[in-house]
């Protein structure tokens, strides 16, 4: 503020990701709680994808793919625990695993096609 009083009304700051992180949480919670497969998958994708985007944007990580891999590993572990241990919440477990797989595929695709494109320009 001190350097540039008055400037603050020119919206120094914006990021598209927070809204979607915030939307991803309730959607995935609803999906997992009520066992609604598409909501669970979509919500987790939205949540993890936005986290990855935000990490990249803020410069906490160098590459998007690495955070996506980590996030998808966490989901794999969580989904596996739900589906294949005595917790035995099979639908929810598979939904989480599906989200993990999609995240991984999406990450690789993004890395191969989209990101390279941008670098080239």
């Amino acid at each position: 503020m001190d350097e540039a009083p008055g400037l603050s009304d020119q919206y120094r700051t914006a990021s598209p990701w927070p809204v979607f992180v915030a939307l991803g949480i309730p959607i995935s919670e609803l999906g997992l709680l009520f066992g609604l497969f598409p909501l669970a998958v979509g919500g987790l994708l939205l949540f993890c994808g936005s986290i990855a985007g935000m990490l990249k944007e803020s410069g906490y990580v160098e590459s998007t793919i690495r955070s996506l891999v980590v996030l998808s590993a966490i989901l794999f572990a969580f989904g596996g625990a739900l589906a294949f241990t005595e917790i035995n919440l099979v639908t929810r477990g598979y939904a989480t695993i599906a989200a993990a797989a999609l995240l991984l595929v999406g990450g690789v695709a993004f890395e191969l096609f989209v990101w390279d494109n941008k670098q080239a320009i």
Binding site: R12, S15, P18
Partner: peptide
């Protein structure tokens, strides 16, 4: 963060100020 921001609804949806 970007220094210049869109106006209208988008500003409020994306703001981190």
């Amino acid at each position: 963060v970007s220094e210049e921001k869109p106006s209208g609804l988008i500003r409020w949806l994306t703001t981190v100020d």
